[in-house]
């Protein structure tokens, strides 16, 4: 469990990002704010096109060329030094990536260079960050490979094609934390993996986090993964965080109709659900998003207020912040928790 009281390693404030395209500006991320504390696992949950990947790319400054940050700042803290990530020079950025913050992309099994042994890929990474002692690198790498439950000696001297998809994924996690970053960003870490491989990855991530104490931001559309791994869950809809709070509050006491809608649209093994239903409609076009609350065209609680004004992400009713004008009506409407 992470420490609520400690100062955030990462603070995102009022971050807005647009993509300039021929058809107009895509408002991919709007006024996003959150804190990430040491050892915390934060899940960004949302559907495809909700802007969750854009947020994470901004954190490592890897946005595509047509992206423009129109507002906000991202503060990163290591020990007593504080940096504004949006103002780092290229040299500072190269040091920041991997050493301070590592990202494992979706479908990352293909991230390895197929003609180099795993060992070379660990060494190259370490050396480009100024670490040259090969014995020490090897020792650290073997420890990490063991931590991800692989046969360290064998994997270290293998070529990528000699490893299965699940093994590659775990090797990549080990490589990701080689330089002991404070933050690890995982984009859909279990998507496209088989159930039993997914289970192994989840268990390994939990082990790693317990031993290495890094903070995790993971991006997923999979609510079960968030339920299993996250301390804090943020629901992302149409580029905005519409609800954020401790995992139990989000799952048992959700305050936003979208989060609640997601929860009631997923079948589970445990419960018998006769009340499952989809959210009507589909996510909005972000070139020309609806006025007011962006969820209002799909929302059963929408009123005139929702058409006109966008609700703030506020902590007024309930246990945690949510952006909705009608939290009281949502709470009233649900007789029992999901």
């Amino acid at each position: 469990m992470f420490d609520q009281q400690r100062e955030a390693v990462l603070r995102v404030e009022d971050l807005s990002i647009i993509y300039r395209t021929k058809r107009g500006d895509v408002k991919a991320t709007s006024r996003v704010s959150f804190d990430l504390r040491p050892g915390e696992a934060l899940a960004l949950i949302g559907e495809s096109g909700s802007g969750k990947t854009t947020i994470s790319l901004a954190l490592i400054r890897k946005l595509p060329k047509n992206a423009v940050v129109t507002s906000g700042n991202i503060t990163y803290r290591r020990d007593d030094s504080v940096q504004d990530l949006l103002k780092l020079s290229n040299r500072q950025l190269r040091a920041f990536r991997w050493k301070d913050c590592a990202m494992v992309f979706q479908g990352a099994q293909n991230a390895f260079n197929p003609v180099l042994k795993i060992r070379r890929q660990f060494e190259d990474t370490a050396q480009s960050h100024g670490w040259t002692d090969k014995t020490a690198i090897r020792e650290r790498a073997l420890n990490l490979l063991e931590l991800v439950r692989l046969d360290p000696e064998r994997v270290y001297d293998s070529y990528p094609h000699e490893l299965s998809g699940g093994m590659k994924q775990r090797t990549l996690l080990a490589l990701g934390v080689l330089l002991n970053p404070q933050i690890v960003i995982l984009d859909e870490p279990t998507t496209a993996l088989d159930i039993l491989t997914q289970r192994a990855i989840i268990d390994v991530l939990n082990d790693m986090q317990r031993q290495l104490h890094f903070s995790i931001i993971f991006i997923s559309h999979d609510l079960s993964l968030a339920a299993e791994m996250a301390d804090t869950v943020a629901t992302v809809y149409a580029g905005e965080i519409v609800e954020i709070g401790p995992v139990n509050d989000i799952f048992y006491r959700s305050l936003h109709p979208y989060t609640y809608g997601l929860l009631t649209s997923v079948p589970t093994l445990e419960h018998m659900q006769d009340h499952l239903q989809s959210i009507p409609g589909s996510p909005p076009n972000l070139i020309d998003p609806p006025a007011g609350c962006k969820f209002h065209p799909r929302c059963a609680f929408a009123t005139d207020a929702c058409h006109k004004d966008s609700p703030p992400l506020a902590l007024d009713i309930g246990t945690h912040p949510a952006a909705c004008w009608h939290k009281d009506r949502l709470l009233e409407s649900r007789k029992e928790p999901v």
Partner: peptide
């Protein structure tokens, strides 16, 4: 397989 599947329910899973 059934034991490995995560559930969208933090306490259960």
């Amino acid at each position: 397989l059934l034991s490995a599947i995560p559930e969208p329910d933090p306490e259960k899973t």
